[in-house]
Write a protein that binds this DNA or RNA. Sequence first.
DNA 1: TTGTAAATGTGACTAAAGTCACACTTTTAG
DNA 2: CTAAAAGTGTGACTTTAGTCACATTTACAA
Lengths: 234, 234
Amino acid sequence: MQNIDFPFDKFNFNSDSIFEGLPEDDITLLNKSMVTHSYKKGEILFRGGSYPTGIYYIKKGKVKKYNTDKEGREQIFYVYREGELFGYHALLSEEKFTDTACTIEESIISFIPKDDFLEAIQVSSILSNRLLKVMSHEFGVLVNALSVLAQKTVRERLAVSLLVLRDKYKKENQNSIPVELDLSRDDLSKFVGTARETLVRLIHDFKEEGLIETKGRKIILLKPLDISKIANLY
Amino acid sequence: MQNIDFPFDKFNFNSDSIFEGLPEDDITLLNKSMVTHSYKKGEILFRGGSYPTGIYYIKKGKVKKYNTDKEGREQIFYVYREGELFGYHALLSEEKFTDTACTIEESIISFIPKDDFLEAIQVSSILSNRLLKVMSHEFGVLVNALSVLAQKTVRERLAVSLLVLRDKYKKENQNSIPVELDLSRDDLSKFVGTARETLVRLIHDFKEEGLIETKGRKIILLKPLDISKIANLY
DNA sequence: TTGTAAATGTGACTAAAGTCACACTTTTAG
DNA sequence: CTAAAAGTGTGACTTTAGTCACATTTACAA
């Protein structure tokens, strides 16, 4: 397996680190009224424009976050995986949700009610420092995404997206086996920021160039190193 | 003067509110080693890749924040004005700066050293709560910018940009006089996310449609309401 | 004030990506 | 198991925006 030189940090929110190794007391407080639910593919957790009631922690599965424009077109700006936390922005900014969260595969997700979370922040300086750190990192990630969208071609953006998603679909200890992405062409095109047809044609090109393989809708990343060269980031 | 229906909140970081009405003690601590400097147009305050040493507060003037890609092309993602605070993300995330800050007009800017700022955050829960609130709001702003870039035409984005910048160039009590934007075509094109030539042609169109007027490089916003219709956000 | 450099503006052309129409394939529900 | 629906793939064409070359204007420094 080839070694990839790709700045994953610049594309990842690191929200995992918020709860990592938190003191017992804080955990207890957060767990107080926590409820865990099972979700099918395509279920909406919250919708832009509605008021936040708590935050979400993914135990298993994946969630896409997107914005919807006037005409109803989605722009997916992030995919959360197992271990990630989301939904705290609207709570902390005391605003309505600006985006929508929706599962893209069967998932198990825990919900921590607003009051418990806000209390935990006031009580635990560790937690509030963690949030400061993660959110300031997220700022850089979004700015980076903005630049990629503004300055890179669709082909380059597809390469970037494949590598970013590779990290999301990579299983533990899976360093020798090529990673398989399992998401719809539609979602992938909305993540890349292009038309579905354009995406499909590029997938075709990547296949011809031997970078990837497809198995049904699944995309198998054969040559991440070569894909990172196409991404052309550095 | 026409009334404009445009979601300025969704395009503004609100970093002003961080220091607003902060307790005396906190102010004193932040002021301890604060130094204030005068800058000419085009001076760089910090550069992506370097380590943060403190944060900046604009007393007068304007600062652009941008990313530079491999080929050296700038993508301006924000313009800070008088009263705004910046440079805290890299400090809080304990990373290098991911972006570059540069004055776009003569400015007076205060610098608060890293240690004072970090101490103030640990001491003052008001300050740290303010930061949590502002950064979570910023998240929504950047996501919004991302969607606009992905889904709007250059013409629509120019309309959005003109209105966003209008807020930055608006003077106090200037509700009856049209706002004048004073920035280079180059910077404006990098803010809109397009080629300079494309921008110039659109400026020409807007002029023909009677939406704006130009005086040298200055752009006078005659009909913000009509411009907001072109922005086509809602 | 005037020469020079920088910034702005314009035309012609090219390239990139989007749209529309439709065929084919896979998935899903009854 | 099968029909319908949803998702995927392809061709032809259009539109949008970028590039290159160069004219014109503006700003600025000697």
